[in-house]
Computed example of a mutant assay.
Amino acid sequence: MPELTLADVDALAAEAHAGQFDRIGVPYVEHVRAVAAGVAPFGTGMRMAALLHDVLEDTPVTADDLLRAGVPFGVVATVRRVTRAPGVAYPAMLRQIVTDHSATLVKIADNAHNALADRAALLPEADRLRLADRYRGARAVLWPAVCPADVRAVVGIVNPALLAEVGGRARPPRPAEPGGRTGTDRPGPGVAARRAQEHAGGMERGWPVAPVVATRRGSAGRPRRGSRRCPTCSSG
Results as ranks from 00 to 15, higher is better:
11 A>H: 08
11 A>L: 11
12 L>W: 01
12 L>T: 02
12 L>G: 01
13 A>R: 00
13 A>E: 03
13 A>Y: 01
15 E>Q: 14
15 E>P: 01
16 A>W: 00
16 A>D: 02
17 H>Q: 08
18 A>I: 07
18 A>Y: 10
18 A>P: 06
19 G>Q: 10
19 G>N: 08
21 F>A: 15
21 F>H: 14
21 F>C: 06
22 D>I: 05
24 I>A: 11
25 G>R: 09
25 G>Q: 03
26 V>T: 15
26 V>A: 14
26 V>N: 15
26 V>D: 15
27 P>D: 08
27 P>C: 08
29 V>Q: 07
31 H>A: 14
31 H>P: 06
31 H>S: 13
31 H>V: 11
32 V>A: 11
32 V>G: 02
32 V>D: 08
33 R>T: 06
33 R>Q: 15
33 R>A: 11
34 A>C: 07
34 A>L: 12
34 A>R: 10
34 A>N: 12
35 V>G: 00
35 V>I: 15
35 V>S: 04
35 V>P: 00
36 A>I: 02
37 A>Y: 03
37 A>N: 12
37 A>K: 14
38 G>V: 04
38 G>S: 06
39 V>Q: 03
39 V>R: 00
40 A>F: 04
40 A>W: 00
41 P>K: 09
42 F>A: 03
43 G>K: 09
43 G>H: 05
44 T>F: 03
44 T>K: 14
44 T>Y: 08
45 G>Q: 14
46 M>A: 13
46 M>R: 10
46 M>G: 09
47 R>Q: 14
47 R>V: 10
48 M>K: 05
49 A>C: 12
50 A>P: 01
53 H>A: 01
53 H>N: 13
53 H>K: 14
54 D>V: 12
55 V>G: 03
55 V>E: 04
55 V>A: 15
55 V>R: 01
55 V>H: 03
55 V>T: 15
56 L>H: 02
57 E>H: 07
57 E>G: 07
57 E>L: 09
57 E>Y: 07
58 D>P: 02
58 D>V: 09
58 D>M: 14
58 D>H: 14
59 T>E: 06
59 T>M: 06
59 T>S: 09
60 P>R: 13
60 P>H: 13
61 V>Q: 06
62 T>S: 15
62 T>A: 12
62 T>W: 05
62 T>V: 13
62 T>I: 07
63 A>W: 06
63 A>E: 10
63 A>D: 11
64 D>Q: 15
65 D>V: 04
65 D>T: 11
67 L>Q: 09
67 L>G: 09
68 R>P: 03
70 G>R: 07
70 G>A: 02
71 V>Q: 02
71 V>S: 02
71 V>L: 09
72 P>E: 11
72 P>R: 12
73 F>H: 11
73 F>M: 08
74 G>I: 05
74 G>W: 04
74 G>F: 04
74 G>D: 11
74 G>R: 14
75 V>R: 00
76 V>N: 02
76 V>H: 01
77 A>C: 09
77 A>Y: 08
78 T>N: 04
